[in-house]
Lab assay of single mutants.
Amino acid sequence: MLSDEDFKAVFGMTRSAFANLPLWKQQNLKKEKGLF
């Protein structure tokens, strides 16, 4: 599990902003970052 700081560094957004994205968009971002 990423820390909040690492999460923001990897995804360029906060966890709450990420959580507001549609599920497909979350999955695409995870795949792009190799976290899926």
Rank of each mutant, 00 (worst) to 15 (best):
L2A: 06
V10E: 05
T14Q: 03
N28V: 13
K30M: 15
G34Q: 08
Q26F: 02
A17D: 15
P22S: 04
F11H: 02
Q27S: 09
F18P: 00
F11K: 00
M1K: 11
D6W: 14
N20Q: 15
G34T: 05
N28E: 15
Q27I: 15
Q26N: 01
N28T: 13
D6G: 10
K8W: 13
A19D: 12
M13E: 02
N28H: 12
K31R: 13
Q27M: 13
E32P: 03
G34P: 05
T14F: 02
K25R: 11
S16M: 12
F18L: 02
K31H: 11
V10H: 08
G12S: 02
K25Q: 14
L23T: 10
E32S: 08
E5T: 08
W24I: 07
K25V: 14
N28G: 08
N28S: 14
N20G: 09
F11R: 00
V10M: 12
F11W: 05
K30I: 15
D6P: 02
N20F: 05
T14S: 11
E32K: 06
P22H: 02
K30H: 08
K33W: 06
T14G: 05
R15S: 07
S3T: 12
P22W: 02
M13F: 05
L29R: 03
A19F: 13
T14N: 08
E32V: 06
F7I: 03
A19Q: 13
W24A: 06
F11Y: 10
F18H: 00
S16Q: 14
P22Q: 03
A9N: 12
W24E: 09
E5C: 04
K30T: 11
L35Y: 15
F7Y: 06
Q26W: 01
K33S: 12
K30N: 09
Q26C: 02
L21M: 06
N20Y: 06
K31S: 10
Q26D: 00
M13T: 02
M13D: 01
K33Q: 09
E5D: 12
Q27E: 15
L29A: 03
E5R: 07
K8D: 07
L21T: 03
S16C: 15
F11M: 09
K25E: 14
A9Q: 09
N20S: 14
L23R: 10
F7V: 00
N28L: 15
F36R: 06
K30D: 04
A17P: 00
A19G: 10
R15H: 07
K31I: 13
M13Q: 01
Q26Y: 01
L29E: 02
T14K: 02
L23Y: 13
D4M: 03
R15P: 10
L2R: 05
M13S: 01
W24L: 06
P22T: 03
L23H: 10
K30A: 15
F7S: 00
K31A: 14
L2M: 12
N28R: 15
E32L: 08
F18Y: 05
F7R: 00
A19R: 12
G12D: 05
W24P: 04
L21D: 00
T14L: 03
L29S: 01
A17G: 03
F11P: 00
E5F: 06
F36T: 14
R15V: 10
M13I: 09
R15A: 10
K8I: 14
G34V: 06
M13W: 03
F36Q: 10
E32F: 05
K25L: 14
L35R: 06
F36A: 13
D4V: 03
K8Y: 15
N28F: 14
M1T: 12
M1S: 12
W24H: 07
K30F: 15
A9R: 13
F11V: 04
K8S: 07
L21V: 02
N20R: 13
D4Q: 03
W24N: 06
L23S: 07
Q26R: 06
F36D: 14
K30Y: 15
L21E: 03
E32I: 10
R15M: 10
L2S: 04
G34N: 09
N28K: 15
A17K: 06
S3P: 04
P22A: 03
V10K: 07
D6A: 12
S3N: 11
D6N: 08
S3E: 06
F11L: 04
V10A: 07
W24Q: 08
M1R: 09
L35D: 09
A9G: 06
D4S: 05
R15F: 07
T14I: 03
F7D: 00
L2I: 10
R15G: 04
K25H: 11
A17S: 07
K33V: 14
K30S: 11
A9C: 13
S3Y: 04
Q26G: 00
R15L: 08
A9W: 07
A19W: 08
M13G: 00
F18N: 00
Q26E: 01
K25F: 09
M1I: 12
K31W: 13
K25D: 11
G12K: 04
R15W: 08
D6S: 08
Q27A: 13
P22D: 04
E5V: 09
E32A: 10
F11S: 01
E32G: 06
A9F: 10
